[in-house]
Every structure is written in structure tokens, then in C-alpha cells.
């Protein structure tokens, strides 16, 4: 039942991103902070709709798959390819293909099984990187994307900054009040403590 729901949601999200491509991509804020995460989320939901969600991986393998997602995210943070996705259909196609698979599905598969130190490290770095993007976009004499206006770029910078703050709150809070199942209290094999 929930599986069908996940599958449907995934399909809806994905097709939403495709159908409203023009609208979403007209503004860099919705492009970067809405469409790209939505595509990744579609991938997560897709994986959750399959049996792959139960696959038990050795930690070292889970780490590697998590890193795949990290590099895919890095790639789509390059202004060069965001620009290119707007004018080059191949790049646009690659975007719609790799974000759900390499980012979304990879994380859904491997994140929880990756080493807790790696997860903590990546979370901290994600916050820093959002901050870096905020710093660079808010105050850029340089136009970073040829397809977007400088004023849009600045709005995107503030968007990144807000995202950085939101994400750090969302990740810090559970550390204060983890659910009992997530702490050492239960010595279960799947250790889900989020660092």
C-alpha cells in the first residue's frame, strides 16, 4: 500500500518537474532550491517503492554509494552546468536522469547504512557549502550564470543562506532529543543515530 503511494508520489514529483520545467527554470531560486531537490526526492521515493529499500549493505559499500551522491551534487552545483542545462537538451536530459538516480536513489539506499562519522562529516560540510554559495552569490560583481540576472543571483544567495540555517537547525535538533530507539539504549544492529 505505502509502496504504491511512494511510487505514485515519485511519478507525480518527477513529471511535475518535467512539465513545469519552463516555469521552474525561469527563476534560479526555484530552479536550484525547488526543482533540483524535488528531482532527488523523486529518486528517494522511487527507491522506497521497491525491494531495494531492504538491501543490507556492508558499511564500506554504503560509504562508497553515499560518496557517489556527494559528487553528483557537486556536479550540479557547478554554475556552468546549470547554465548548460538551459540551452543544451542533452545536459537537461542528464539532469533529469542523474538527480533522481545518482543522488536520490543512492542516498535512499545507502545513507542510513553509511558510517556515522561520514554522515556527520557530510552534514557539516553540506551546511558549510550552502554557506559558501550564499557568500559568493549574495555579493558577486561577477555574473555567475549567463542565463540569469544578477538580482536573481543575489536572491538565490539569500536562498542558500536561509537553506543553510534551516538545515542546520533541522539537523541539530534531533541530536538534543533523539528518539530512544536511536541511542545506545537499544543495541540493535541497524544503528540509526544521526550525527
Amino acid at each position: 500500500m505505502t509502496r504504491t503511494l511512494f511510487a505514485v508520489l515519485s511519478a507525480v514529483l518527477f513529471s511535475g518537474c518535467v512539465v513545469f520545467r519552463g516555469e521552474l527554470e525561469a527563476d534560479p531560486v526555484t530552479h536550484m532550491l525547488l526543482q533540483l531537490p524535488a528531482l532527488a526526492l523523486a529518486g528517494v521515493l522511487l527507491l522506497l517503492a521497491t525491494d531495494l529499500r531492504f538491501v543490507k549493505l556492508p558499511a564500506y559499500f554504503a560509504n562508497a554509494i553515499t560518496l557517489v551522491a556527494v559528487f553528483a551534487v557537486f556536479f550540479w552545483m557547478l554554475p556552468r552546468y546549470i547554465d548548460a542545462s538551459l540551452i543544451n537538451p542533452f545536459v537537461e536530459f542528464a539532469k533529469f536522469l542523474t538527480l533522481p538516480t545518482l543522488v536520490g536513489a543512492s542516498l535512499a539506499l545507502a545513507w542510513r547504512q553509511a558510517h556515522p562519522f561520514l554522515r556527520g562529516f557530510l552534514k557539516a560540510n553540506a551546511i558549510s557549502m550552502l554557506g559558501v554559495l550564499g557568500f559568493l552569490y549574495i555579493h558577486a560583481p561577477l555574473r555567475i550564470c549567463n542565463s540569469y540576472l544578477v538580482s536573481d543571483q543575489q536572491r538565490l544567495g539569500y536562498g542558500f543562506l536561509i537553506a543553510a540555517i534551516a538545515v542546520s537547525l533541522a539537523w541539530t535538533f534531533p541530536l538534543f532529543f533523539p528518539s530512544p530507539s536511536e541511542t545506545g539504549a537499544s543495541q540493535s544492529k541497524t544503528n540509526k543515530v544521526t550525527v
Binding site: 560518496l67 557517489v68 556527494v70 559528487f71 557537486f74 556536479f75 557547478l78 554554475p79 556552468r80 552546468y81 547554465d83 548548460a84 561577477l142 555574473r143 555567475i144 550564470c145 549567463n146 542565463s147
Partner: peptide, 18 residues
């Protein structure tokens, strides 16, 4: 991963379209 990023940015020289 680093190799891909390297190639995709012409050896980290070109991060933007410009």
C-alpha cells in the same frame, strides 16, 4: 568523482559558462 569534476571543469579552470 574528482576525475569527473576535473574533466567537467577543464581542470578546475572553468566553473562558469563564461
Amino acid at each position: 568523482g574528482v576525475g569527473t569534476l576535473w574533466a567537467a571543469t577543464d581542470g578546475f579552470r572553468a566553473l562558469t559558462e563564461e
